[in-house]
Amino acid sequence: MVEALTDKNFEAETNEGVVLTDFWATWCGPCRMQSPVIEELAQTNDKVKFVKMDVDANPETPAKFGIMAIPTLIVKKDGKVVETITGFHNKEQLNQTLAQYID
């Protein structure tokens, strides 16, 4: 399951290990395409924590990261942003990206 985060708990929930955050909105078509891919990865990859954040309900965190388009995926490793990806990406593309950061 992909946990939904808020502005209040984002930092605490994404400070350890490799974390992929999906920044999305309900009205965003490409976000609705990206979501099932993230859900599938979350079920098959136990080395990465997968979380999501609704940018409309939580405007502070996306603003802090300069997110201007969605979907945007941010990969953090031990609390530091190591990758920012904008637009739809398939499972293979995301697995390749994440593989670089898994020990």
Score class of each variant (00 low, 15 high):
residue 11 E to Y: 11
residue 15 N to A: 15
residue 32 R to T: 08
residue 17 G to L: 09
residue 10 F to G: 01
residue 53 M to Y: 01
residue 13 E to W: 02
residue 29 G to D: 05
residue 32 R to H: 07
residue 46 D to N: 13
residue 27 W to R: 10
residue 9 N to W: 08
residue 34 Q to V: 06
residue 28 C to R: 12
residue 27 W to A: 10
residue 29 G to V: 14
residue 44 T to Q: 15
residue 48 V to T: 13
residue 47 K to F: 03
residue 47 K to C: 05
residue 25 A to C: 12
residue 36 P to T: 09
residue 13 E to L: 13
residue 54 D to Q: 08
residue 7 D to W: 11
residue 59 P to K: 14
residue 55 V to A: 03
residue 9 N to R: 11
residue 56 D to A: 10
residue 27 W to P: 07
residue 42 A to Y: 02
residue 10 F to W: 00
residue 28 C to W: 09
residue 32 R to G: 10
residue 40 E to M: 07
residue 56 D to K: 09
residue 25 A to P: 07
residue 14 T to Y: 08
residue 53 M to W: 01
residue 50 F to E: 00
residue 51 V to Y: 00
residue 17 G to H: 08
residue 35 S to Y: 08
residue 22 D to Y: 07
residue 46 D to F: 01
residue 21 T to I: 14
residue 33 M to C: 03
residue 46 D to M: 01
residue 44 T to E: 15
residue 49 K to F: 02
residue 54 D to V: 08
residue 41 L to E: 01
residue 49 K to L: 06
residue 42 A to L: 04
residue 36 P to H: 09
residue 52 K to I: 05
residue 20 L to E: 06
residue 10 F to T: 01
residue 42 A to T: 05
residue 19 V to D: 01
residue 58 N to E: 06
residue 29 G to A: 15
residue 54 D to T: 08
residue 53 M to I: 05
residue 16 E to G: 10
residue 9 N to Y: 09
residue 11 E to C: 05
residue 9 N to E: 05
residue 37 V to E: 03
residue 52 K to Q: 11
residue 9 N to G: 10
residue 21 T to W: 00
residue 45 N to I: 12
residue 37 V to I: 15
residue 56 D to G: 08
residue 56 D to E: 14
residue 39 E to L: 11
residue 50 F to L: 02
residue 30 P to K: 13
residue 12 A to E: 14
residue 59 P to H: 13
residue 35 S to M: 15
residue 36 P to N: 09
residue 11 E to S: 15
residue 24 W to C: 04
residue 47 K to L: 10
residue 46 D to P: 00
residue 43 Q to L: 13
residue 45 N to R: 11
residue 39 E to F: 10
residue 33 M to H: 02
residue 8 K to C: 00
residue 52 K to W: 02
residue 24 W to D: 01
residue 10 F to D: 00
residue 31 C to D: 02
residue 31 C to A: 08
residue 40 E to A: 15
residue 32 R to M: 15
residue 52 K to D: 00
residue 11 E to V: 14
residue 45 N to W: 00
residue 53 M to R: 03
residue 13 E to I: 06
residue 42 A to H: 03
residue 37 V to T: 10
residue 34 Q to G: 02
residue 60 E to S: 15
residue 26 T to S: 15
residue 9 N to V: 10
residue 58 N to L: 07
residue 22 D to V: 10
residue 58 N to D: 07
residue 37 V to P: 04
residue 39 E to I: 09
residue 22 D to L: 11
residue 55 V to Y: 02
residue 48 V to Q: 07
residue 55 V to P: 02
residue 13 E to N: 14
residue 33 M to A: 14
residue 19 V to F: 06
residue 52 K to G: 04
residue 42 A to V: 04
residue 53 M to V: 03
residue 50 F to N: 01
residue 46 D to W: 00
residue 59 P to I: 13
residue 9 N to S: 12
residue 45 N to T: 06
residue 55 V to C: 05
residue 8 K to F: 05
residue 41 L to Q: 05
residue 9 N to T: 08
residue 8 K to P: 00
residue 55 V to S: 03
residue 13 E to K: 15
